[in-house]
Design a protein around this nucleic acid. Structure first.
Lengths: 250, 250
DNA sequence: CGCCTGGTTGAGAATCATCAACATCTGTGG
DNA sequence: CCACAGATGTTGATGATTCTCAACCAGGCG
């Protein structure tokens, strides 16, 4: 068990750097409870393990493997997916820096999904047993984790609605607007970004075939909503794209 | 605020009876942490409020209303649903006795869904603030609620897969097998039961139109998998129905 | 009794999947 | 550095599942 290294100075908080502590991680407003006091953050810091980065296509965890930790993404991007009866995969979410995954494993003490890196990624491992113990002492932390889990439920429910009610164009527009918002949250451009996932992954996530995804990208370009160059996307008409999407709040 | 009435004697634990305490509720193996000691159950009992039954089509809570409690179903059945942009509803789940709903509201302190009774139903209201406090003192309770939320996440993810990958027949078979299992859990018949929801609700939940649901019911009857009389369903060939469904474990 | 909601059945239409061919990108090894 | 192979993405033609629209039936309730 590597003990975490404490750095009280204000070193550059690059998320790839595995020596950054929670206190000076630039993502901490996303994954940490705002209300935690500095010395409480240190206690959280102590249970968090920062492993070496995982490469593209490597697993963070596999479906049905024993559950022990949840993970906060530090850099890169991961997909979570379940295998269906007939061995196909169904992607249930993409996870970006500051977002937390693995909570589906808590209920049955084994992972309900697999998680695989879409590109070289670094994560903070948060042993759940210890998190639970610490949470009994820090009510704010407990509340925060209830909230994170609740958010996961809400976003799953939104995906359910999307899959059930919306057309291919609405689905893709919704994904793009959602990604845009999540990039903005990390102070990145909300209109020009790189999709870390393949077209196949997008189709899988949205319940569409690759071909349909490709065609809809084509239509969006013809309508001057987007300019697309491989995985690079530039949103040209944000408002129109949003109005196509299933995302309501302005 | 009515104070809960304690009944230490072994009165008949009918779930409609609002005076039954957690300790002698016959559903407590479903909604309570197994490991809780008797006097701890009493403490939980004290924060739980047992309101009067809600009638068919009445709301338990509405989307965007302030969140304060989660609810355990005591009798009846409820549906949870979200309104889409254009005012349509999307059902995200049906909740039967022993099951817990409302957890989607924790994250933003307002309900992400509405919940409406499909028939006269009774619920136990569990004020979340107090549950949080009690959980810091009873680690088992905290763990139990993490698990319940995690189960909700897992089942939402299974629904995502179902909606995205499966045909109309697979969807309906899956719902029927799932209901069957949940009735069995409550010691009711797993092959003969009454659907509390309308065909429209089933279609909505499964991402199908009423007509399609009706046709698939018809086909299943022609294949002698089911006999259907309105809302009464009798499963004639459980194994075949299960093999059509997306439910794997035997 | 008749209205209204909920459910069933039929015919035609539309979206998206499938199948297939082709283009492009990636990376590996000569 | 180039060439090639495999993976990934695009485009086209065809077809199937499911939706839409419409008519009709059944049961419950005033």
């Amino acid at each position: 068990m590597p003990t975490s290294i404490k750095l009280k100075d204000t070193m550059t908080a690059c998320p790839h750097n595995s020596h950054v502590s929670c206190g000076n991680c630039r993502l901490n407003t996303l994954c940490l409870p705002i209300a935690l006091r500095t010395d409480d953050i240190s206690r959280l810091d102590e249970i968090i393990q920062r492993g070496k980065p995982i490469n593209k296509n490597e697993y963070l965890y596999k479906q049905n493997s024993p559950f022990s930790s949840v993970y906060a993404v530090r850099s890169g991007c991961l997909k979570a997916y379940r295998l269906t009866n007939d061995g196909e995969e169904q992607i249930t979410g993409f996870y970006f820096p500051g977002e937390i995954l693995g909570m589906d494993g808590i209920g049955k003490n084994k992972h309900n999904c697999s998680a695989k890196a879409l590109e070289t990624s670094a994560v903070c491992e948060i042993p759940f047993e210890q998190l639970g113990e610490l949470s009994t002492q820090l009510p704010e932390l407990q509340k925060h984790f209830f909230q994170i889990m609740s958010h996961e439920i809400s976003s799953d429910q939104q995906l359910i609605t999307l899959l059930s009610k919306n057309s291919a164009e609405e689905k893709l527009a919704t994904l793009l607007i959602s990604l845009s918002a999540r990039f903005a949250q990390r102070k990145l451009s909300s209109t020009k970004f790189r999709l870390p996932m393949s077209r196949t992954d997008i189709g899988n996530y949205l319940g569409l075939t690759v071909e349909t995804v490709s065609r809809v990208f084509g239509r969006f370009q013809k309508q001057n909503l987007l300019s697309v160059d491989g995985k690079e996307v530039k949103i040209l008409d944000f408002d129109e794209l949003k109005s196509i999407s299933a995302i309501s709040e302005i």
